[in-house]
Amino acid sequence: MTADSPILELKGINKSFGAVHVLHDVDLTVMPGQVTALVGDNGAGKSTLIKGIAGIYSFDSGDYFFEGKRAQVHDPKDANALGIEVVYQDLALCDNLDVVHNMFLGREETKAGTLDEIDMEKRATDTLKGLSVRTLKSVRQQVSSLSGGQRQTVAIARAVLWNSKMVILDEPTAALGVAQTEQVLNLVRRLADNGLGVILISHNMNDVMQVADSVACLYLGQMAAQVQISEVDHSSIVELITMGRSGDIGIQLDDALTGDVA
């Protein structure tokens, strides 16, 4: 694997729910070591696309390449097996368990049928250290005692614990204050710096501009554009989200018209 070849490549993805055609010929490329921001207005199809990648829905048509190989993902377990982890907006943590228990939830390490707490605690600590997490007092703290940012940190750390290759983050900063947003964005950046592919869904353009390497914009179920962050600015992303185009990038109505004529 070279760093130049995409970790995830989607080509011509279509998905309908009954009569509603949610995704039209969507292409998406995610590079390892980069943060790919996925933006779009409500109803643009972000969630459908993510759930398709994660295996919660299967796409109707289109090509799904992971690490250059065609992959069949019809079940969340398929996605996990490939090394794809999703951190959902509501985090899905158990408040009554501690950090280690949550990180290993459903995939506990056992020794002779009993929980191997020592091994789990070591691996959890190592993972948090690898992400330079400095906000947790103890990995044996109950999650109910953690702040929003700390919870997000635990959820992200859980996603990278499993030697995952790509992490999808669904609005990780939506409910956070300024300082905690900063912490989480730093963490997102470090995930990419550690070589993972990262998809970041966000409504916050400041976050996108700060942390993303490229931005993919969905507009009414079509991929308006996927461009390097250096090629766009704040206002052009907003135009892409609201109108599907900005200057000469995005969906060009003229092209479509001439295409039809020809």
């Binding site: 600590t125 250290k129 330079s132 400095r134 007092k137 103890s138």
Partner: peptide, 8 residues
């Protein structure tokens, strides 16, 4: 290590 990791 001199990282300011605050894991006990």
């Amino acid at each position: 290590q001199t990282t300011d990791v605050d894991i006990p």
